[in-house]
Each structure stands twice: as structure tokens, then as C-alpha cells.
Design a binder for these strands. Structure first.
Lengths: 393, 393
DNA sequence: ATGAATTAGTAAACTGCTCAGCATTATCCA
DNA sequence: TGGATAATGCTGAGCAGTTTACTAATTCAT
């Protein structure tokens, strides 16, 4: 709690930022509205917003048709297109690149399938092509990007490496930060996919009202991401949420209950097998229902461990299996009731497989915001990454 | 991230607080030193500290023996005795009351044994007597107390009740806040004992350097308290850390391995039995070592679940058994190595059974600080509790 | 069409804070 | 006793935001 002294210039900077916050994410606003939102007087807001306009952070919209009485007000709009960020999901089967403006509006999205067996070099090459395509479609250069966040499977350490375990072949030696640094001078961040999905769920998903969230990435692999007190919980070594590694938690083998369910067509791929079982369970097939129940039972142990450890407000069921949440949530609730002291709300994700890239976008935007908070807002330009981070070879 | 606008008066308040922060916990300081610490100019600090003195928050120490050349500087000292807080541990076997000044110096400590079977009324009566005695010895009245925090066993909800489970007989219907409110008009807080002990370890204990801590309260009961990103993690319903409730985690039965160890003198009380086993294990007794290993194995599952879920920097082994940490920590480390992805540091608590009351003091001081931050610092007087909280009958 | 009502924009006066610089004061040391 | 040194006290300049009052632009009712 080291409060540090303030002077006038810092105060002006803070008030400037409070205007930006009040401007962003709202429809074009009048000075009076902004004054109310930011808790400042009208004249003060006037000069602040004036200088935001000259700096290029905001723009005026001259009054047009106006149905209220009185002199029509100019409306100011945050220039969301002053900068952009990239959110990238490097998955096992697909690569998803999202280009977003500073307000979080998605300007461009590109999905590309990728060979699950592809080596890191091939995967990076596919990522590069996807990025190129997105930038080209948007008419932008890498220098126009203010921050990049990448999501990968497996726990990620502070340098962006995945050193413990990952289903991506050869990824233990891959260094995404170094690879992207060759093209982007802006801050680059790598984060675990479950954590990013959790962030997305709180941003634009089903848990936007909650501050304490356990997010479950359920699919052929199972993982978890935690948001506590509104902030992403990374863990001291970046490995928070890896409860699946506990032997008593059978997350590794849980999906097998679905794949080995009697009656699954022999031709089905692993992911399709699970979908078939869920559908069959929905239709009342006894064996399928049993398989789902067994899957749920294994799943529940790990969820219960997280719930007991953290006592969250909401558990979000997301990932590839979340489309079948209707047949999973109720049995899961029953299992959790057995284990937990206090049952949190259970919700199904609606973001589907875009959640990871979306969370990456949000984290990149957060990075931009934190720069603004610490460095203040000069004219809008792409920030440069700390060179001190490059020594992480 | 709702930054709100600031004006001059707020700025002065913040600078005033930054002076208080710079003053507190330091030896009497000169204006120049304070200016450096607070990042303000010397004249500014001068008038601020002046008004702190007239308000009663600080006092001057006229220069005495001074070995440096030049005009001797006045030194200012935070008036830590301007207010006091109480930290109270209502345990199964004992009641511990600590009276602390605003700097966290313990002015008075009183420990009283209590019948483990005592009903809430009797326990409250004992608490009242202890408080009376402490206040009398310090020559204070209840009105001189600025905040009270109480530690009890079992998960505590927002109203201070323990509704789920507790080893204190009859406690499910007890309302410590209501009881204390009859005598104290200041803010009253009730918190779980493990959580308070965790706070104490980070404050004055063995984990003062860490921001992510799993604290283990090991004794005849086993519990955990979590500190994440430097803040106490309560959980949405106040039940964070209750991993012991999971069936796969055998925390309830774990201490039984010690009590049923062959060779324990039949006359020993439960607590003494464990101590005897630890001592025997230390002396090389095979059966005792086996019992300790079994105890540790059960303990480790729950710890591993917390470590995997949160990836903390440090695990602190505290509680009644922490005196025997020397025979527990090494086997515990070995067990954790089997379960965990990344092994955190393992440390033994040194605060003994004072940790709960000490954590209560820290939380009471935090309450005082947060009032200062939100309400600003008028003349130092005891704050009054929000009456809006009394409706929780 | 005209004036009242209403709201937005703008200018001036005022408050309160920080800061830079200089004069003053208290102490040590030769 | 007279420098040297370092802290204190004071004054004026500058700055940001608030308040107040006034002017400008628009709608609505008469």
C-alpha cells in the first residue's frame, strides 16, 4: 500500500484517462454526459476532451437531427481505430487470429485448420500466413499493432515458454515470443488457453457479472482457468488451475468414457464420438447416459477440488463439449452437490471455440490500458516492447 | 477499471495519506526524508506534516544530540498510540486477545484457557472478561478501540456467522458480531482462523516476501488459508480453502494416524499423543516414523490439490503441529513432488499459536487503513461501524 | 413570426496546491 | 569568534479545476 505523492500534471493525466474511460465503450457522448460519468465539472471536461481531439484520441461528431429542446450538443467519440491488437489462438487442430480495435470490436477474424501433428516450425509458418492475411485484408502493417497475445495449450511460464507439458508436438522447445518478436515491436504475451477462455467468458461471455470464476475447458482434453477478484489468476509459475494433474482427479481419462461407449459408430473420429454419445444421451439411450454420467463423475472430482479451494461464484462449462452442456450440466450439478460445501452457479459457455482468441484480445487490450495508466497518453502510437524482456532467450 | 476524476482537495488528501504511509513504520523522520519517500517537494511536505501535527496524527521530536554538522532537523513521528485495535482468537481450547496500536505494535496480550465443551454464551463471557482485563491494564475504554477482528474455526459468511460446520459446540447459532456490537461501536469483523493465520504469516511470519501463499493449519484439525496476489482470498461465500471437505482428501482422518500409533502412552491426551509420536519419530522409532509418513501422505493430497489449483510461491506449515515441522516437512516435500507439477517452497511457521490473533490484528489494521483511504483523515478518532450492517440479525 | 424555455459553449475570477529559489537560522568546527 | 553546513521559512510563479455568469443555438408554444 505504498501511496505515492501526486502533483498537478499527474492529476491532469488521471482526469484525462478518466475521460477516455468514460468515452470508450459508450455511444458518442456530450460534454455534460462525460462530466457526469467522470465526476468532473463541465468546463474541465471541455478542455480535456479538446486536447484528446487534438492528440487524436477522440473525434467530434457535429450535431445532426436532434429532437430535444435546447442547443444541440457536440458529441465526442473515442477513436477506437487509433490502434489495434491481435489475439491469436494456436490450437492443436486450428489457428484463430482476431484483429480488434481499441474498443474490443473485432475488425477481422481468420480461422485456419492445422495438422495436429505439425511441428512448431510448420505451426508458426501457418500462424504467420494467417497474420499476414488478416493484416492485408485490414490494410495494416505490423507496426500498426499495439499488442499481441497468443494462447497455447499447457502451462506457460513468465517468458512465454511451455516447459512442463503440452499436447502440441515439439512445443516444449518452441518460443512464440521470440518468433513473433521478429515482426512485432509491440508487447507480446503468451498465455495458457484455459486462462484466456476464462477471461473471455468474463468479458463477453456468460460470466460478465461475476468476479470469482472457475472456467472449465471441457473437450478431449480438460483444463481450468481461474478468475479471482476480477483478475486472471496465473499462479506464481503460471501453472494455476492445473488440478487435472492430481492422480485422484481423473481428467485425463474422463473423456474415454465417451469414446469407448458401446454403440459409437466405428468410423467416428474422437471428437465426433463424444458428440455422438451426447446426442444419443439426449435421445434417451441408456448406455450413452451411463457413459455421460461416468464422464461427469470423473469431471466433478476436479471441479469440486477447485470449488472447495476457491469458493467461486460461478463455474462456467466451456470448451468443445460445451455445445452439449444440456446433458452434462444437470448430472454435474448433482455430483458437485455431493462433494461441495456451497454449490456455485453452473453456467454453459456460449462463446464456443472462439473463447481463447477472444480472451487473447482482451489481454492484449489490458496490456494497452496498463501502458496508458503507467506512461500516460501521448499521441496514439504503437508502444514498444520492453527490451529488457528479450534476454529470455 | 473505473478511474474517477480528481480535484485539488482529493489530491491534498492523497498527499496527506502518502505522508502518513511514509511516516508510519519508520523511525522519526526529517522533512527531507519524508519528501524523498513520498515523492513530494520539501515545502509541500512541510505544510502537510504541520497539519498532521495539529490534527494529532503526528508529533514533533525536538532535536537532541546531533552528530552531523548543520542545523539539526526536527524529526516527526507517527502517533501510533492515537488509536488501537483488538485481535481476538476464539479457539476451541483457548482465547487470545491482542491489543495493538496503529503501527501494529502489541501493547497487551492475554491468553485464557477455555473449556472445549463450553457453550457459546460461556465462551462469549470468557471473551468479555479477557477483553475487559486487557482494556483495564491498558487504561482504555471500548470507545478507544478503532476496529475489532475475531477469529473462529469454520467457514465464516459475510455476516460473521459460521453456518456450515464448526468444532465449537453450538456455534452455528452464535453471532459474534451482534455480541460485540453491544460494547463496540467501531467496525467488527469475524474471520476464519486459517485465513487469519495466513495473513499473519505474510505480515510478521515466515512468508513476508511472498504474494502467493497457501497456509496450512495443521493440528488435530486441518485447514488452509490462501493469500493470492498479496490479498487474503475469502471466497464468494467465505469458504475458500476448505479443500478438506473433499472425500479424496483425508484431512479429517489424517491426524488419527498419529493418535492410533502403537506405543503411545495410554494416558496421553489427543494433542499430547501427536507430540509424543513426533518426538519418537525424531528419535528414530520405526512405528512412529511410519505413522508420521501415513499422516503426511494423507495431508499431501489436499496440499497438492491446493498447489495444483493455485500454483503458489510458498506453502507454510503452521498450526499446533508446526513445532514438529522438522519431522514433517521432508516427507511432505517428497509426497508433494509425486503429485505436483511445480513444487513451491515449503516453510515452517514460527508464529506458533499466536498466528490467528496476530492475523486478526492485521485485518483490523487493514480495516482502519481502508477507512482512511476512503474517508480521508480527519482528527484521529474511533470510526463508527456502518449501521447498514446491523440488519443481519 | 416571435419570444420563452432550455441546453451548450465560453470566459473570467477564484481557490488551493506544488515548486523553485532565496533569505534566515541553528549548529559544528577550526 | 567566525566560517561552513544544512535545515527551515517565506515569497512569487505556475497550473488545474471549480464556480459563476454570460452568450449562443435550438425547440416549442402562442
Amino acid at each position: 500500500m505504498a501511496t505515492t505523492g501526486t502533483d498537478l500534471s499527474r492529476m491532469r493525466e488521471m482526469n484525462m484517462l478518466s475521460i477516455v474511460w468514460a468515452l470508450r465503450g459508450n455511444p458518442p457522448s456530450t460534454v455534460t454526459e462525460l462530466a457526469g460519468r467522470a465526476g468532473l465539472s463541465r468546463p474541465a471536461v471541455d478542455v480535456l476532451v479538446q486536447s484528446l481531439v487534438t492528440d487524436g484520441w477522440a473525434e467530434v461528431e457535429e450535431p445532426g437531427a436532434n429532437s430535444v429542446v435546447g442547443r444541440p450538443a457536440r458529441r465526442f467519440r473515442f477513436r477506437a481505430d487509433a490502434g489495434h491488437v491481435l489475439g491469436i489462438d494456436i490450437g492443436v487442430h486450428k489457428i484463430l487470429v482476431m484483429l480488434s480495435d481499441l474498443e474490443g470490436n473485432l475488425v477481422h477474424t481468420l480461422r485456419r485448420p492445422v495438422d495436429p501433428e505439425a511441428a512448431p516450425e510448420a505451426r508458426f509458418a501457418a500462424v504467420d500466413r494467417a497474420i499476414d492475411k488478416v493484416l492485408r485484408s485490414a490494410g495494416m502493417a505490423p507496426a500498426d499493432i499495439w499488442a499481441v497475445t497468443v494462447g497455447v495449450t499447457g502451462p506457460v511460464d513468465a517468458s512465454g515458454r511451455t516447459t512442463i507439458s503440452t499436447p502440441l508436438p515439439g512445443w516444449l522447445t518452441a518460443d512464440p515470443v521470440a518468433h513473433l518478436a521478429a515482426r512485432f515491436a509491440c508487447p507480446i504475451q503468451v498465455e495458457n488457453d484455459c486462462k484466456l477462455a476464462a477471461v473471455a467468458e468474463r468479458w463477453k461471455g456468460v460470466a460478465s457479472d461475476a468476479d470469482d470464476i472457475v472456467f472449465l475447458l471441457a473437450g478431449l482434453r480438460t483444463g481450468a482457468g481461474l478468475i479471482l477478484d476480477g483478475a486472471l489468476r496465473r499462479g506464481h509459475g503460471g501453472a494455476a488451475g492445473e488440478i487435472g494433474a492430481l492422480k485422484a482427479v481423473r481428467w485425463l481419462s474422463a473423456p474415454a468414457h465417451l469414446e469407448t461407449c458401446p454403440g459409437v459408430p466405428a468410423t467416428a473420429a474422437p471428437g465426433e464420438a463424444a458428440a455422438w454419445v451426447f446426442q444419443a444421451a439426449r435421445d434417451g439411450d441408456r448406455q450413452a447416459r451411463t457413459a455421460v454420467r461416468r464422464y461427469t463423475r470423473d469431471l466433478a472430482v476436479g471441479v469440486a477440488a477447485l470449488v472447495l479451494a476457491l469458493d467461486p461464484q460461478v463455474v462456467v462449462y466451456g470448451g468443445g463439449f460445451s455445445r452439449s452442456a444440456d446433458v452434462v450440466l444437470e448430472p454435474l450439478r448433482q455430483e458437485l452437490t455431493k462433494h461441495c460445501l456451497r454449490l456455485p452457479e453452473l453456467r454453459a459457455s456460449t462463446l464456443g471455440d472462439e473463447s481463447v482468441a477472444l480472451g487473447a484480445v482482451r489481454l492484449a487490450l489490458d496490456e494497452v490500458d496498463s501502458r496508458l495508466l503507467s506512461d500516460g497518453l501521448a499521441a496514439p502510437t504503437a508502444p514498444r516492447r520492453d527490451t529488457s524482456r528479450n534476454d529470455a532467450n
